[in-house]
């Protein structure tokens, strides 16, 4: 086991780590923490592990990480042999762009993530305001991905996915969990939809509740005799 992940299955941030580990083919120990209803992440035991009182928590030896973006960075630097998920040191501009969109992923957690928690568990928030900021964030990403597509770039910072894509993906894909408020559904965002398909097509992609896999043809469905078009 390479590291330990304190995990909650329904958390979009925990899912980022699970998804990246699956893509990289890294084995890790997963410990479930009862975020709801027990609020176990705020318990004395858990606060001793991570005083931040948040999930996920990633531990390796003495290192304890409570920020998802730091986890993705550490995983990329430690396990990614392709060197594509975090740009190399000779390209500070590319690194800066990834950092910029990692920052944006934090905005998504604070907007769509919070609105989703409110929809699921009725956590108290100023819902109208948070939903409005969620829509603003989605529109910003849509505009950016549209511009990227003009240059044949399918991902947030270029032709290949980086940890910025994985950091932004879950809460964008989960925006439908929030509600039917106008501007949250994916129908209005063709560039985001294409990007979601690209990420779902990555080797090693795994789903979470609310984020489904793309339908794959099973052997019996791919039977060529069934697909034959009758003549005449």
């Amino acid at each position: 086991m390479e590291f330990t992940l304190y995990d909650y299955a329904l958390s979009g941030n925990c899912y980022k780590v699970r998804l990246f580990a699956s893509i990289l083919g890294v084995n890790y120990e997963k410990i479930s923490v009862e975020f709801h209803p027990a609020a176990e992440h705020k318990s004395e035991t858990m606060l001793q592990i991570s005083p931040a009182g948040t999930l996920p928590i990633l531990t390796v030896g003495e290192m304890v990480l409570s920020e998802t973006q730091a986890m993705l960075f550490w995983m990329a630097k430690t396990y990614d042999r392709s060197g594509a998920w975090w740009p190399n040191n000779y390209d500070p501009m590319a690194q800066a762009m990834v950092l910029q969109w990692l920052g944006f992923s934090g905005d998504l957690t604070a907007t769509i993530g919070q609105a989703r928690l409110n929809s699921l568990f009725q956590t108290p928030i100023d819902r109208a305001k948070v939903v409005k900021c969620s829509v603003t964030a989605l529109r910003r990403l849509e505009a950016h991905l549209t511009e990227q597509s003009f240059e044949q770039k399918k991902f947030i910072t270029g032709v290949f996915p980086t940890i910025a894509d994985l950091a932004c993906f879950p809460y964008v894909a989960l925006s439908g969990d929030v509600g039917t408020d106008p501007g949250l559904e994916h129908d209005s965002y063709p560039a985001i939809r294409n990007w979601i398909y690209e990420i779902k097509s990555l080797p090693g992609f795994i789903p979470m509740p609310g984020i489904f896999e793309m339908h794959q043809l099973k052997d019996h469905e791919a039977d060529p005799t069934i697909r034959q078009v009758p003549e005449g």
Binding site: L10, A38, P209
Partner: peptide
């Protein structure tokens, strides 16, 4: 307990969608 609760919540969140 956390594992059992999580299992049930995971199933139910798939249904919620």
């Amino acid at each position: 307990m956390a594992d059992m609760v999580e299992f049930q919540q995971l199933i139910f969140l798939q249904d919620r969608n």
